[in-house]
Computed example of a mutant assay.
Amino acid sequence: MKLGPKLRKKSTELHEFIRKASVFIDYFLWLLLDPSKYTIIKTNKIKKILVVLVNPEMGNVGGDFCALGVVNYFKKVYPSVNVSFLLDKKTKSHFGEIPGIEMIEHKGRRALDILKKNAPDAALFISLGPFKLKDFLFVKYRVVTFYPSIRGLLVYKNKLHITRKPFTLWGTHMVEFGFKMFESLGFKFPRKDVIIYYSKKEENKVDNFLKKKRIKKYIVMHPGGKHVVKTLKGGKWPPHLWPVDRYAKVANHFSKKGYNILVTGTKEESYLAEKIQEKTKSKIYDVCGLFSIRELAPLLKKSELLIATDTSIVHIAYQVKAKIVELFGPSYAKAVGAWPLNSKRHKILIDGGPCARSMRKIFCPENIVCLDRISVREVIDSSEKLLDISFKKTSFLE
């Protein structure tokens, strides 16, 4: 329904108020109705943890790699605890093989029968897919977080049988969600970090590409994201798209300064790379679809900078300590921005328009350009400031 910019902003503010309130309502109902909360947790007895991450078809790649980054760090801090994932096929393919973590593909209820034979002591539920919490009553400790939403509040499914439910306000970052789940089981972290693994073979593929193209100093641009190309080709404006002519101007500016420009994305997002190339005389390297998600990690680690909107590549970039200029329109930077939010490696630019913090991914009925207030000059200035700073590759908070 078309509302116009002013009413759209009011609608967004109302939805945000409901999100904030839903956290308190959901938590109160759990405290009131679920006797599972009285279970006493003995952290020293937890030797095996299952993470349930069975996504619907579209999935949430950025959120998935946030969760994986936290689990990888947990394994580094607590190497004696066995950790396994129950995953859908696509997410398992994205994650690949991880040292010390078992990946179990969801193939219907047969997966539950296998798990029951060697039951984990605790389970963290990120996405249940077709399962219900009562399917996992063979697990002693069951941890669930509530993502603030109207739908999540109204759906009664999976409201009970929860041993611990961390209280997470609207605006809690996805990385913090992961740590709070472990902390609710009694695990402590002297500091917090996220880790992404990639193989030597994956790194070599990136090195061979860069060597073949004679690319030494480069900036990565990632203009795409979920639904962007499909929405654009359908004649609507994607909420997460910064105008391609502005990407072209930024690319032209840095090309003149000696930087190569690589445009990443899925294979279909080559469409955006082509549009950028059409609007600049500078050479653009279209690598859309060339690298897997894990292969993007070494590509980003070797880069000088990433320029992107809120999408999965950002959650890969901060795990390899890359410099990031991130552009926000409808997403909520506090909840999904480059982590940690106070890192000097990152610069987050926010368009506070009518859809700000709405988390809208699909097209806007009013066709509002949600990132229109972020100028080319802002992106160039922010990028140059980061490019002028030298960091070690070992710490987020320098």
Rank of each mutant, 00 (worst) to 15 (best):
K2V: 01
L7T: 06
L14E: 09
I18P: 07
A21D: 00
F24M: 10
K37G: 09
I40S: 14
T43R: 11
L50Y: 02
V51D: 02
V52C: 11
G62H: 11
G63N: 09
F65R: 05
N72F: 04
P79C: 07
S80E: 15
N82K: 15
V83E: 09
K89N: 12
E97S: 02
P99A: 04
I101N: 02
G108Q: 07
L112D: 00
L112F: 10
I114T: 10
L115I: 06
K116A: 05
P120V: 10
K134Q: 04
F136A: 00
V144M: 13
T145Y: 15
T145A: 08
G152Q: 02
L153Y: 07
L154T: 10
L154W: 15
V155S: 12
N158L: 06
K159Y: 02
K159F: 07
R164A: 05
M181I: 01
E183P: 02
G186V: 04
G186S: 11
F189V: 10
K192R: 09
I195V: 11
I195T: 06
I196P: 12
I196M: 04
N204A: 04
K205P: 08
V206M: 09
N208L: 08
F209Y: 15
K212D: 12
R214A: 11
K217A: 08
K217Y: 10
Y218A: 00
I219K: 01
V229N: 05
T231L: 01
K233S: 01
H240R: 14
P243S: 08
D245V: 03
Y247S: 00
A248P: 12
A251K: 08
N252P: 14
K257Q: 12
G258H: 04
Y259V: 09
L272E: 08
K281N: 15
I284S: 04
S292T: 09
E295C: 04
E295H: 08
A297I: 03
P298V: 00
V320R: 09
K321C: 09
A322T: 07
V325Q: 02
A335G: 05
G337I: 09
L341P: 06
K344D: 06
R345L: 01
D351L: 03
K361Q: 14
F363A: 15
V369A: 14
V376A: 09
R377Q: 11
S382D: 14
K393N: 15
T394W: 13
S395N: 12
